[in-house]
Structures are given as structure tokens and as C-alpha cells.
Amino acid sequence: MKCDECAPLLDDFLYNQTDGATEKALAEHLHACDSCAREYALLRREQELYARTEVEIARDFWSGVQARIATETRSRAQGFAGLFSALRFAPVAAIACLLVVVGAVGLWRYFSARSDRLVTAQIPQAPRVGVTITSEKSVPETKTVKSDAVRPFRLVSRSSSRAYARKIVKPVPATNEVVENKPLSADLDADSARHLEQVEMLLRSFKNGRHSNTLDLTYESGLSKDLLARNVLLRRDAELSGDEPLTRLLDQFEPFLVDIANLRDNSDSKEIQNVRERLTKSEIIAAVHSF
């Protein structure tokens, strides 16, 4: 690899966004070329400085988001309620309209019938002609099929619409592999499923991350502690209920959660790399993903 090929790829290399062959070629070139190696070192130092300027968010940030969403949902519901309150006189108004319409139709029929009688009276000798209507026309039979998938639109409360939506949505596994690997005893409850998702996310994040600054470790270490505590409880429950596959899986998590929880801001990169390599070798992430 030449310098002019290497230079544009340095930041891809820094962010671990190169493929295997390119990464190898870049590493070899940086080993051999002082000028590119200096440029790369400068990029890394800049990146370390920028990482120091990362800001933390307020602890109540997310509760602020939730409050705003809740306010918006409430005001939407109040809008509907307002609509309903405006329509509370609707039945009375509807009945009044119906009476008016019925009265109007009745009057129209009365007067049109009266004018017919007058016309008939004026032509007393007109022959009566009967018209026979054959009723052989075939009306295609329409089959009414009740479909659960199609329902008339109606206003429902959020909770019942959610229940309704849940009813018609059937969870479909993405691949056959997942179905075949599904353990016999596992119909996971919501808590266990959520826990597995969060552990998978943490382990994947840790395995793939480049820990060039200390702030990331603090967050992941804290999260790992929380997940570890929950893991212990869920494992115990799984043991008591005789769910062996789940027990085994949760058991496999604990060493990794302990290691990540124990990592501190002054842990050296070897320690971090060690945990990452064990994560890769154990294939725990693939196991939880297919569970």
C-alpha cells in the first residue's frame, strides 16, 4: 500500500471501519512508513482529546422525555374527550333530524300519491296495463366472510386498542434457525425476555466497542451491576421452575457481567481486551440471540 492510498483510509482504520484485508494492509504500511504513522498518531491524539469533551446528560433527561410524551398523549385524549362532550347532544340532534327527514319523506309521498290519484281520476277510461316482471335475474350470491383482519373503524381507548393490536399481531420468528433452536421449556415471560435483550445489547456493545475513554466504562460497568443483580434473581426463579435451558444461559452470563462490572476507569486495555476475547470465544452473544 502506498501513502496516497493509506491517507484517506486512516480515519476508517481509527474507527474500526475497514475490512480485514484493508486493515492488515494499513497496519503493515503504518509499521513501515514513519510519515503515515505520525499522521495516524496525531489522529489518535485528536480523537482522545475530543473524547474528553463528551458531555453527560441530566439524570432526569429521559423522565423529561416521558413526561412530554405523556402530556402530548393526554392532550390528544382530551381532544377526543372534548369532541365527545360536544357530541353529547348528538343523539338528541340525531333524533330530531330523523324526525324531520321522516316527516319530509312522509309529506312528499302523501303529496305525490295525491297527485297520482288526481291524474288517474282524470283518465277513467284508460286501459289498465299489467306489467309482469320476471324475477329470473340471478343475483350473485355474495358470501359474507367475517375476517378478523378487517374491522370497521371505531374510536377506542388506547388500552383496548393496544390489546386489540396485540391480538392480531402474531410474532413470527425471523428465521427457521430460531425456531429449531427454541428450547423445549421456554415460553419466556416478559421480564426474562427483556433481561436477555438488555444483556445481549450490553455484551455486544462491550465486545464491539473501542474503549478509548473512561466515560464509556463507567456507564457499562454500572449497567452490568444492575443486570447482574437481576440475573441472579431470574436464574434462581428458573432453577425453581425447572427451566434448565434458561438456567444454563443465565449462568453463563454471570462471569462476564461480573468482569464488566469490576472494570474501572483505570483498568488497562489488556484487561478489557481479555474480557472481549473471552466473549468472542464463548459465543455467548450468538447463544442468547438464538434463544
Binding site: R162, R166, V169, P171, E197, E200, M201, G209
Partner: peptide, 19 residues
């Protein structure tokens, strides 16, 4: 990358209004 995989089920639920 961390948050893309494993988010499929959560996304469906979020789309149905699950806060």
C-alpha cells in the same frame, strides 16, 4: 450496531404505542 440487532421486537411494540 449495538442497538440494531435484537431491536426488531421492541420496534414493533413501540410502533403499536407501547411507551
Amino acid at each position: 450496531q449495538t442497538h440494531q440487532r435484537g431491536a426488531g421486537g421492541l420496534l414493533e411494540r413501540a410502533q403499536q404505542g407501547d411507551e
